[in-house]
Design a protein around this nucleic acid. Structure first.
Lengths: 329, 329
DNA sequence: TGAAACTATGCAAACGTTTGCAGAGAGGGT
DNA sequence: ACCCTCTCTGCAAACGTTTGCATAGTTTCA
């Protein structure tokens, strides 16, 4: 039923080699026959079977993306960028969600390895030893995580944290809580690194958590924060921050008057919350595109001098109404 | 470099056929040899090449999902369900985002056709004629759209609308606006069908739009609604509803006192808005899973009596603070 | 004891491509 | 008239699997 290269060849009165070449190496076949082949192919509705092609070329024309949790609005936006750029480069994209589970993530990479030319790992949660088992099975590009000299797109989490600290310090906060995200998260580690900026201002940092990087993690975190008596908090991401704000409202703690709140990611919800959330915006979609660029580059150039293996994007603190000067106590 | 079935055969001292059978038809090979083969395979880290397998079996073990817009939070949740169920059934998933563009959507199906066993079309925007060109190229399952007798998972949009109308009628609203979503959307057509429920209550419906089903569509819609002088509105989806509420707030129209607002989808943001949004909740993740079930079923059974080709899920009105009795004028 | 019926395995063809090699013309220079 | 080169095309092998058919060995039964 599906039309193959054989059908086109027979119909066009040429050999399969010619048909193949008409598509893949146009300058090897006479312009006239090439047109003829292309037309009959079009007429018959022929689309080359990429699996068969991949079998011989070793290239599948696919790659994979693995994200920790699709229901976290952070990821769909970077997926969108991946998607768009992939289509431009004529690649198809396998998607998988590992549910924040590192072992599952590793299994997914291994399962994908044979069907793809490379995999993009978004905020990978894998342990170093799991990574070792996986590096080399296929080309990898990381987003939001730097592991040795593997290609990576980074969104400057430490710099983002420094901006947040600068902002809170400028407002006069002297004792600030940081709500940790998942332990396995590289972004979280980087953000903690950024916390050192506090030393400049003699600001005291109280670390709490880790918490689930979701709205549901907020209430627990909020209660701990209140008990600490800080005047401001920085949450691992916006979802967590929103959950915290919700609980603070329930407990009668006014934001921002009694508690300033800063998030990360600038998800769409952040701007619509009450009060609108001050947050560090990332260039998600651009990161997705950059990751594809890196991967494509990696696959096309000889491999020796792949050139730049890292792309650093900057992020931007968006000040909204959830932060202000601390209450005089 | 990658280890093939040949390597395993040589290493295990058997023929490739035996290795192949050890994996795919275990009862055809002696338990003892089978164990031996499986062990050497494991030791060598062999994973069958699915493309090569697909070439001969005609089954790829993949399928595709196409969504109109990843940045609409409605879709990632159904994707999550698709993902989870697909992995259980040992399928890999191609993802594509057609950017609300029907022509692109069609092209994507055609491009995928050869690499997948079937495609799940989520809220497909294709025209009937585009659909004709695509039906038959591969197995299709629709979510949120019914086209002739193709397999489909429906989330009861008409019934959802009836619940919304009942609710507003009970509150005493007599003149209500409906803000249309994309013209090409089947859900939108179905919801309009549900509007007939209004007749029961002598309620007048004012239809406006279509509007982009995004936050950005809201302001324009809000201004039109205010000009109509209705006491309540039902928006095509939550994003649009939130956009409307934002503009209403800017224009000094109090929600819900001067205007009741109902959305569709119950995206996470809905519950966190001010005021929290009354909305019709869908079972997105379950819909995703159901779609995969349908597809798998379609592919495994002979095809003749595929049994149930439709799955109807019900939805549920969630009443929050954005709706109340109309102001006495 | 021999035929019949299984059981377990191997051989080789097929799936739809790409690609190295070789051959057929055509054209050009001597 | 010859050889060389160049352009275009076809043949056939390969890629990593699955699977129909054949074969060899083992069991069953009369």
């Amino acid at each position: 039923m599906p039309v193959t290269i054989q059908d086109v060849a027979r119909e066009a009165g040429v050999s399969v080699s010619t048909v193949s070449r008409a598509f893949t190496v146009p300058d090897l076949v006479k312009e006239e026959t090439r047109q003829h082949v292309l037309q009959t192919a079009e007429r018959l509705g022929y689309r080359p079977n990429r699996a068969a092609r991949g079998l011989i070329t070793g290239k599948t024309g696919n790659f994979g993306v693995i994200v920790p949790d699709l229901s976290n609005p952070f990821f769909p936006t970077v997926l969108k960028g991946v998607q768009a750029r992939a289509r431009e480069a004529d690649y198809a994209v396998f998607l998988a969600d590992c549910d924040e589970n590192p072992a599952e993530e590793m299994a997914l990479v291994q399962a994908m390895a044979k069907q793809v030319d490379g995999v993009i790992l978004c905020s990978s949660r894998m342990t170093p030893s799991q990574l070792d088992r996986v590096v080399g099975t296929t080309s990898l590009v990381f987003i939001n995580r730097q592991v040795r000299d593997n290609p990576a797109v980074l969104m400057g989490p430490a710099a983002g944290m420094r901006q947040a600290i600068d902002h809170l310090a400028a407002l006069g906060h002297r004792r600030v809580a940081y709500l940790n995200g998942p332990k396995a998260s590289w972004s979280n580690r980087e953000r903690r690194r950024g916390l050192r900026q506090a030393a400049r201002y003699a600001m005291e940092i109280v670390e709490l958590g880790p918490f689930a990087p979701r709205f549901e993690g907020g209430p627990h975190a909020a209660d701990l924060v209140i008990a600490e008596g800080v005047t401001a908090l920085i949450a691992f991401n916006d979802l967590l921050a929103l959950g915290v704000m919700s609980r603070l409202a329930d407990r009668g703690v006014a934001v921002p008057e009694e508690m300033s709140v800063v998030g990360f990611d600038d998800i769409p919800m952040a701007g619509m919350a009450t009060p609108p959330l001050t947050t560090v915006a990332m260039q998600n979609e651009r990161a997705g595109r950059a990751a594809v660029d890196l991967l494509v580059n990696l696959l096309t150039v000889s491999g020796a001098d792949a050139g730049d293996l890292r792309r650093d994007l900057d992020c931007q603190l968006i000040v909204r109404a959830s932060t202000t000067v601390p209450a005089r106590s």
